[in-house]
Amino acid sequence: MKRTLRKARLLLGVTYAEMMEYRAELYLWALSGIMPFILMGLWAKAAGETPMGMPPVDFVRYFLAVFVVRQMTMVWVVWDFEYDVVNGQLSPRLLHPLNPVWRYVASHVGERFSRIPFVTALMGIFFLLYPKAWWVPAPGTLALAILAMLVAFIMRFVMQYAFAMLAFWTERANAIEDLWFTLYLFLSGYIAPLEMFPPAVREATLYTPFPYLVYVPAKLLAGQPVPALTTGFLVTLAWGLVFLALQQVLWRTGLRRYSAMGA
C-alpha cells in the first residue's frame, strides 16, 4: 500500500510538472470549452421568452455546472494511446513493471490539478459579471456532485480507453471515438438538459451511460433535482463493467498484434 501510494504520488507530481510546462496550451484548451456559455445564452433567452418548465436562471446555473463538469471530466486517452502505438512509444511503457494505463491516468489527473485554478478564475469572473446566478450548493449535494463528477471521469476514461485499444488494429482508432462523441453531445445533456427531451426519449436515455457523464453531475452541482440516482448508479456501474471487460479482451488480443512499429 505504501509503495502504491509512493508510485501514485511520484507519477502525479511529475505529470503535474509536465503539464505546467504547457501553460499557454492548457489555458487555450480550457478556453476552447466555452460552448456551454454559448448554449447558456441561447437557452436562458428562449426560457425568458417562452415558458420551458425551467426559469432562465436555472438554465444559467445548469450550463455553468456543465462547463465545470466538462472541464473536470475531459479525457483524451484515445489520442495519446493511438499516437503511442503508431509511433512505438508504447514500447518503453510496456517494458516497465507497471501497467501503462496508470501513466495515462496520472497524466489526466495531473492535468486536472493544473486546470483547476483557471476554471475557478473563469467562474469568479462570470459571477462578477452576472451575480444573479450565484448559488451555493448544500454540502451533501456538493459532495454527491463531486462523487458524480469522479464517476463521470472514470466512465469517460474507461470507455475511451476501450476504444483506444482499437489502435492495435487501425491507425485511426479515434474515428470511433468521434462517432461516440456525437451521441455523447446529444444524449449527455451537454446541448440541452434532459427535461427538454420528449418523455420517451428521456426515459430511454437514462438507460444509456451518457446522462451520467454530464447531466446528472451538472444537475447535482447546480442544486437542481435529479431523477432516480440509485438506478443511475446501477446503470453506470453496468456500463462501466461492460467497457472494462471489452477493454481487457481488446488489450490481450491487441498486444499479440502489436508490432512495436518505429521502435
Partner: peptide, 21 residues
C-alpha cells in the same frame, strides 16, 4: 527512441523510474 520526458529534466524521469521499480 527515448523514454525520457522531453520537456522535463532527466532527474524527473529518473524519479518516475524509481517509483515504477
Amino acid at each position: 527512441k527515448q523514454q525520457l520526458i522531453w520537456d522535463l529534466p532527466p532527474a524527473d524521469s529518473f524519479r518516475i523510474n524509481a517509483a515504477v521499480y
